[in-house]
Amino acid sequence: MKTTSGQKIRTGLFVMAGLAVLVIAVFFIGNKKGLFSANFHVQGMFKDVNGLQLGNNARFAGINVGVVENILIINDTTVKVVLSLNENVRKFIKRDAKLSIASDGLMGDKLVAISPGGATTSEEVKNGDQLVAVNPFDMDKMIKKITGITDDAGSLIAGLSQVVDKVNHGKGSIGRLLNDDKMARDIEGTVNQAKTTIANVHATTTTLNTDLKAAQDNFLLKGYFNKKKKKAIKARQDSIKKVQKDSSARAQAAQPKQ
């Protein structure tokens, strides 16, 4: 049976469709891996790449911009990672950009994250440049740090609780101030005494005034008394003033303690 033209056309369509699928798949996968666009290379020296593999993505600002093209062990503490990045993003990456290794979700693939840079220089990155590599976030180290912080916090809290305990039990001046009534009672007594003293002074002063009036009435002694009176009055007034001063000073001193 000869092939009719209809059969030939259908066979042709079938073959074209199959080849189109192949070409599209190759194109899209290649495109994803940056095979068909202009590329440039940057590299970074890591101590540890945490399982990064060839072909893992390189991300800038959360966008896949390239792939890991090569991973080489330079020496026992250095691993060189070469990235092939899309030429279009070169103008956004400055020379002080940093490379770090991150992972895509908890179980996801590893990737190289590129931080934008631009803090110290505005010069864009060039082909073959070596960028600063921030070593990967190490789980062990983080756990050690957190343990240290927790220990510190523990001793701090222990100290605090001791202080609070002392204050509660009235130890130390703050504790006594907060917890003891005796002092308040002392202050109260002092104030009362001051009040009594002042009352006594008032009484004495009244008696003296009466005596002096009688003495002034005795003419024989008038002159003498007049002089003496003046001195005595003066002296008493001084002593009264002094007592008054004393008591008010004591009262003043007791005042804030209450």
Binding site: T3, K8, T11, G18
Partner: peptide, 16 residues
């Protein structure tokens, strides 16, 4: 060629 194309039709297109 002609038989090859016919077989491609029979094998490829008709199995699709």
């Amino acid at each position: 060629w002609s038989e090859f194309i016919r077989q491609c039709y029979e094998i490829g297109y008709k199995s699709f």
